[in-house]
Simulated scan of single mutants.
Amino acid sequence: MKTLFVSYRVTDLDRSLGFYTALGYAELGRVEIGDGARLVILAFPGEPAASLELVHRPADGRVDVGSGFDHLAIQADTLTDTLKALTEAGLEPGPLQFPGGPDGPKTSWLTDPDGYRIELVEWPSGHPDGITAADFS
């Protein structure tokens, strides 16, 4: 078993696509699911498969993010460069943070048009991609 992708329901598909493409995602394809509803499948360039699905169901009204979902984490190669590029693209990332101290990961937070929180992470040199069991030893 493995996780395939995260799926978000969005209020305004064009606005959300503008946000996620500015973040660096590329559209892989769309699926019309009836009654004006559609799915848009996204991935970062270089990813072997989809990693994000945007679900737009206009008949369901505005999205209420609610209290159960916390955030999506996205790895950046060089976070300072990423923050600069996102700011130039009109997005508003938060300040650079060092939650594990100066030798730990660098992070920044961003919120999408529907209120979904995104954590941008740059791992220290030599750290594997993602969190592994070694992070808890």
Rank of each mutant, 00 (worst) to 15 (best):
F69R: 10
R9G: 07
T11Q: 10
F98E: 14
Q97E: 13
A49N: 10
V10Q: 11
I33C: 06
I118P: 00
E27S: 13
A43C: 05
G115R: 07
L91W: 01
G100L: 13
I131W: 08
P102S: 14
E122Y: 05
G29Y: 09
Y8N: 10
T82V: 14
I131A: 09
T82Q: 14
F19N: 07
G61W: 08
L52Q: 08
D114V: 07
I41V: 13
P99W: 05
E27K: 15
L13E: 10
G46F: 06
A50R: 07
P93E: 03
A134Y: 03
L42F: 05
D64L: 11
G100H: 13
R117H: 00
L52C: 01
P124K: 10
Q97G: 07
G46P: 09
D129Q: 12
A73K: 04
R57Y: 08
S125G: 01
S125N: 05
P48S: 15
Y8T: 05
P48W: 08
T87V: 01
A37G: 15
V31M: 13
E88M: 05
L17E: 08
P124S: 06
A50F: 08
S51I: 02
L83A: 04
S137K: 12
E122S: 03
S67Q: 11
P105M: 14
G126K: 04
P95K: 12
P124N: 04
G68Y: 05
D112M: 11
R117F: 00
F69H: 11
G130S: 11
R117M: 01
S7F: 00
L52S: 12
H71P: 01
E119R: 02
S125M: 00
G126W: 08
H127V: 02
E53G: 06
L28Q: 13
A89K: 09
S125L: 04
A43D: 03
A85H: 03
I41Y: 09
V31I: 13
L28F: 00
P102R: 14
T111Q: 09
R38L: 13
T111Y: 00
D77V: 12
